[in-house]
Computed example of a mutant assay.
Amino acid sequence: MPAIEPSALSDEQRVLDEHVRRMMDGLQTPFTSTDENGALIGPFPVMLRFPALARPLLEWFTTVTSGSVLATRVREVAILTIGSRYGAAYELYSHSRVALAVGLSESVVAGLAAGQRPSGLTSEELVAHDVAACLYAGAPLPGALYRCAVESFGEQGTAELVFLIAQYSSISVILNAFDVPLPTDAE
């Protein structure tokens, strides 16, 4: 699904485009999110084509990310774990760069992207990985793992982790359904 040049956006799309750009500016993203014409890429061309469906997803994203109690590295471990399970190329591309920028090592990022449980994760990062991997498998979260998550992140942080995993599962499905391509600077 090709990007939509800013000059070709409808009024409804333009409002959503502006919202996405404000979100991206606040995240200081170390990955390419626009093409050479300034059009949003990644999952955003899909979202712009279906603004009524995308608005609630983006509002959910904003709700989960604002006031986050989880450490950024923990979040990125969970996101990469989900992205690898779905094989969501753009998610792996973008969040591998974010993970490196927040201090995860290249070997850890490579392992997560390959679907592994790499050594070099902190105990909290291991819990985030295990929760994401377990939930991706479609089974209930075992009580012992849930208790580990609550001990590591508190109830609020555990809920945030679960919602983050659900959110990036949704993004992965969208990326895969519409076969979202990687930008030219992707490795």
Rank of each mutant, 00 (worst) to 15 (best):
M24Y: 00
P45Q: 05
R73P: 08
A3W: 04
V15K: 06
Q156H: 05
I82A: 01
V77Y: 03
I171T: 15
G87I: 07
F44P: 12
G42V: 04
R117G: 10
S33G: 02
I4H: 00
M1V: 15
V69T: 12
T184N: 14
D179R: 14
F61D: 09
V162H: 05
A54D: 04
S33V: 02
C134K: 12
D179H: 14
A166S: 15
E91T: 12
S169N: 14
A3M: 03
A3Y: 06
N176F: 04
T34M: 01
R49E: 11
Y90K: 01
F163Y: 07
R97A: 07
S66C: 01
S7N: 12
G87Q: 04
S119C: 06
R147E: 06
M24G: 06
I79M: 05
F31K: 04
D35L: 03
G111K: 02
E124K: 07
S105P: 10
V74I: 14
C134M: 05
A39N: 03
S152F: 10
S84G: 08
E12V: 07
E59H: 10
V46D: 05
G120F: 09
T158L: 00
V102P: 15
T62A: 11
R21Y: 09
E124R: 07
V15Q: 06
R97F: 06
E5G: 15
S94Y: 14
T122N: 07
E106V: 09
A137F: 05
A39T: 02
L104W: 00
R147Q: 09
A114C: 08
E5Y: 10
A3I: 06
A78Y: 04
M23W: 13
G111W: 06
A113V: 07
P51R: 13
G26W: 06
A149C: 05
A128Q: 12
P118I: 00
H19T: 13
V69W: 03
L70N: 00
E125C: 04
S170W: 14
A101F: 04
I82P: 03
E12S: 01
V109S: 14
I82L: 05
T63L: 08
S152H: 09
P181N: 11
S33W: 00
Q167N: 04
P183Y: 09
F163L: 09
R14W: 05
V98D: 10
L161H: 07
A159E: 06
L9W: 11
Q167G: 06
E18C: 00
E12R: 07
